[in-house]
């Protein structure tokens, strides 16, 4: 407790630590691989990109290609996906007053996947949206799923107990999962690739995918950050929040939409990666406390760093085979889920 009190009483320290973690994770993830790139060279290459300077001559041009074309986009994509899922998870948890609410467990990721798979395999392209058809449909499917999950959970149990929401989420997940299998079976081919995509991966995506996720990440995160006080109030219950002066119906909708934007966009670029939205907010809350004013930005930083490292593990642990990143997050996340659940039952 005393360590936690110390950490909590020092906001600047929290941000410094989270930022340091992110930078170290990023440099490590770029550096490590089949070809190891020295950190000093990475800094030079990135510095040159950021400040639009010519790359220093002493840097090996192979390193430049590896970093600029392969590792950097991959690591950044992992970072944005991790950040999106972590902040979305933190927001869902605050809104539903449930530390087990996570885009994956709630079925939102599955919903987004159905949207993405449908788009990909029927080659849907909405005019005007063009390139953004995939994330937009994923986001719409994600939003539709969370609304349906909450609607059904409320129909089953007006008080919306933790167990009810999780069960409803699981039911939706398996139903939507089967729907995806059905679509795959109907299309027949490329099964292996789809399975890999479904388990989540940030490999071989490139800069274009970063272009897809960044605008949605910015919009979704800003919407949530603007509602951090409201999330604090809603953590004490919707009625309590109303009594404190929160316009609950409107704020709830904004938060659900923002969470769906973040989840949908993440799924559109990387597939369904589970448990990031569960583990990161949980860890962050334990270290720095539940105040969403800090929990949300800290979750962004930590979530980004976490998924960069997870991706690193997934591509190096049994190299040259690349594991789907979702396998690693599930291996870490499922036990954490179990621990939180057991703790909750004990408290109840």
């Amino acid at each position: 407790m005393s360590i936690r009190n110390f950490l909590k009483s020092n906001d600047a320290f929290a941000y410094a630590l989270a930022l340091a973690f992110l930078v170290i994770a990023m440099l490590t993830a770029i550096s490590v691989g089949s070809v190891a790139v020295p950190v000093s060279d990475i800094v030079k290459i990135i510095g040159a990109h950021v400040f639009r300077l010519p790359i220093a001559d002493q840097v090996d041009s192979m390193y430049v290609t590896i970093v600029s074309q392969i590792r950097l986009p991959r690591v950044l994509l992992a970072g944005f996906v991790g950040a999106s899922l972590a902040i979305a998870g933190a927001a869902f948890q605050g809104l539903l007053r449930n530390p087990l609410a996570d885009p994956y467990i709630l079925g939102v990721s599955s919903g987004a996947s159905v949207g993405a798979v449908t788009t990909l395999f029927f080659n849907i392209s909405i005019p005007l949206l063009g390139f953004y058809t995939l994330p937009v449909i994923s986001i719409a499917a994600a939003l539709l799923t969370i609304l349906l999950v909450l609607f059904f959970a409320r129909r089953v149990d007006r008080t919306m107990r933790v167990e009810t929401i999780i069960l409803t989420g699981i039911i939706f997940s398996s139903f939507l999962g089967s729907l995806i299998s059905l679509i795959i079976a109907l299309t027949g081919d490329e099964l292996q690739q789809i399975m890999g995509w479904l388990l989540g991966s940030v490999s071989m995506r490139g800069w274009s995918h970063i272009g897809i996720i960044v605008p949605f990440f910015i919009v979704g995160s800003l919407l949530l950050l603007m509602n951090s006080r409201e999330l604090n109030a809603m953590s004490f219950g919707e009625e309590r929040a109303q009594h404190l002066g929160v316009d609950v119906e409107r704020r709830k909708l904004v938060i659900l939409v923002a969470g769906s934007i973040l989840t949908g966009a993440a799924v559109a670029v990387s597939g369904a990666i589970g448990f990031v939205g569960l583990v990161i907010p949980h860890l962050t809350r334990r270290l720095w406390g539940p105040d969403h004013v800090h929990l949300l930005p800290l979750s962004i930083l930590t979530g980004a760093g976490f998924l960069m490292l997870t991706d690193l593990i997934s591509r190096t642990i049994i190299s040259p085979t690349i594991l789907p990143i979702g396998v690693i997050t599930a291996l870490i996340g499922a036990p954490v889920f179990a621990v939180i659940l057991m703790k909750q039952r004990k408290n109840a």
Partner: peptide
């Protein structure tokens, strides 16, 4: 009622200033 997240006393009271 029971609450899920462990806000401190100060954080909880400060929420009263929301309006």
């Amino acid at each position: 009622t029971a609450h899920t997240f462990s806000y401190t006393v100060r954080e909880t009271v400060a929420l009263g200033r929301y309006a």
